[in-house]
Amino acid sequence: DETGKELVLVLYDYQEKSPREVTIKKGDILTLLNSTNKDWWKIEVNDRQGFVPAAYLKKLD
């Protein structure tokens, strides 16, 4: 059920640097789980959840 889920576009590649982070690729469109922290957003990638720098993402309307 995708209702109410926010999507984000990945602006730059990011390689995870800790187990709490996930790797993302430029151009991916992913589900945003939590954006309350202005610097690190929690997203879902391939059934994995983790954090990436918010500056690497853009919210889609």
Rank of each mutant, 00 (worst) to 15 (best):
W40E: 04
E21M: 04
N34Y: 06
E21F: 04
L33F: 04
S18P: 04
E44W: 07
F51E: 04
D61A: 13
Y12M: 12
K26C: 07
D39P: 02
R20T: 13
L7P: 04
V22I: 10
P53G: 01
Q15H: 12
D39A: 10
V22H: 02
V22C: 09
V22S: 03
G4N: 14
F51Y: 13
K17R: 15
D1L: 13
S35I: 05
L32V: 07
W40R: 03
E44H: 07
P53Y: 03
N34E: 15
D39R: 12
W40Q: 03
Y56A: 13
K42I: 11
N34F: 06
V10G: 04
Q15C: 10
E2M: 15
A55N: 11
A55K: 14
S18G: 15
V10R: 00
G27H: 06
L32G: 00
D47W: 07
K5A: 11
L30H: 15
D13Q: 03
E6D: 12
N34R: 06
D1S: 13
D39Y: 15
Q15P: 05
K59C: 05
A55E: 12
I24Y: 04
V52G: 02
K42Y: 15
D39M: 14
K25F: 12
P53V: 02
K38L: 08
E2W: 11
Y12G: 10
T31K: 15
T23Y: 03
S35W: 11
D1V: 15
L9C: 07
T36R: 11
D13K: 03
N46W: 08
D28K: 05
L7G: 04
V10P: 00
D28M: 14
E44C: 09
K42C: 10
Y12S: 10
T31C: 09
K25W: 12
Y12H: 14
T36F: 09
S35Y: 08
K58V: 14
S18D: 11
T3K: 11
Q15V: 14
K5L: 11
K42E: 10
A54S: 14
E44T: 08
D28C: 08
L60C: 08
G50V: 08
N37G: 11
L9P: 00
Q49Y: 07
V10T: 05
A54D: 01
K58C: 11
V22A: 08
K17A: 11
D13C: 04
K58Y: 15
K5C: 09
D61Q: 11
L30Q: 06
N37Y: 08
V52L: 01
Y12E: 14
I43V: 15
D13Y: 03
G50E: 04
I29Q: 04
